[in-house]
Design a binder for these strands. Structure first.
Length: 270
DNA sequence: AAATTCTCCTGAAGGC
DNA sequence: TGCCTTCAGGAGAATT
């Protein structure tokens, strides 16, 4: 599923083709995504030019004359660049057409979103209350520490709280906590500054490494037809229930935390 | 007010 | 082989 690294790689992949290009058509095959795709998009966007593509959290933001196209990939969404000759497939719900080229959204589970706003993008309801970007200089253990005081929820849930830090989904929360040696069930409010410092470092390193790995495996992004480009990484704990910890060899355990599968090593994480 | 639960959806995986 | 059931999960919304 797309986490922040996949979204960022997607952004980088489409930027060269999309930036400066003029929209010549919009196709909405199925408007029933997370929220209805606005029916008037065709009229709104036709003839307009994409100035740039930004990312905030897992949202892709297309800066278009007088407004913003907001796109989220949800659980199963992917974007690919293709051309008008390629027939859409079953779950290809949305096209942004640039002459003979098409930016096409595929999303089997339809948890994604395509929205339009003319507001100031950073005060938009979806973005206004988001926390810091994990790759920005503002992100540090201090951010986590301050947010954690008085909180009795598990540290993993704090890490996945998007009003604190954005873009840390289930996979990277599990992996970062493993790398920081912290038990995901630990009460957030009882973790020290020092340990949060280590955790922030591991969050950043894990995400950076994933972007690097994904970027190098996505050279053909522009002509990706089927393999939209998500990359499989080697995880320490995620999805490895019962398998040997890569460090100590003990079986990886799984528990439910906040309705989410949580993987950890009882030897390496405290 | 923080914490928890619910909800959307379909492909994959597991059971028999 | 095939049908049926269960599960996963991003994140906003609704509850507690």
């Amino acid at each position: 599923m797309p986490e922040l690294p996949e979204v960022e790689i997607t952004r980088r992949g489409i930027t060269p083709t999309v930036t400066g290009s003029t929209i010549t058509g919009v196709v909405v095959r199925n408007p029933n995504l997370r929220w209805p795709v606005p029916g008037e998009l065709q009229a709104l966007l036709n003839g307009k030019t994409v100035r740039r593509v930004l990312r905030r959290a897992k949202y892709l933001l297309f800066d278009i004359d007088q407004g913003w196209l907001i796109l989220h990939l949800g659980m199963s969404g992917s974007l690919r660049l293709t051309d008008t000759q390629v027939p859409p497939q079953k779950h290809d719900h949305f096209d942004l057409v640039f002459g003979t080229k098409i930016l096409r959204l595929r999303d089997p589970r339809r948890f994604g979103a395509v929205l339009w706003t003319t507001e100031d993008i950073y005060t938009h309801p979806l973005l206004a209350h988001l926390g810091v970007e994990p790759l920005s200089p503002e992100f540090s253990g201090e951010v986590l520490y301050r947010a954690s005081r008085g909180r009795t929820a598990a540290v993993k849930q704090l890490l996945m709280d998007h009003t604190v830090v954005v873009g840390v989904g289930n996979i990277y929360a599990n992996e970062s906590l493993y790398r920081a040696g912290i038990d995901p069930r630990t009460i957030a409010g009882r973790i020290s500054r020092v340990r949060f410092g280590r955790l922030a470092t591991e969050v950043r390193l894990t995400i950076e490494a994933a972007i690097k790995a994904g970027g190098s495996s996505l050279r053909d992004f522009v002509h990706s037809d089927g393999s939209s480009g998500y990359f499989q990484q080697q995880y320490f704990v995620y999805g490895r229930t019962g398998q040997a910890c890569r460090v100590c060899g003990r079986p990886v355990k799984v528990v439910r935390l906040g309705q989410r599968s949580t993987f950890y090593c009882s030897q390496c994480q405290h």
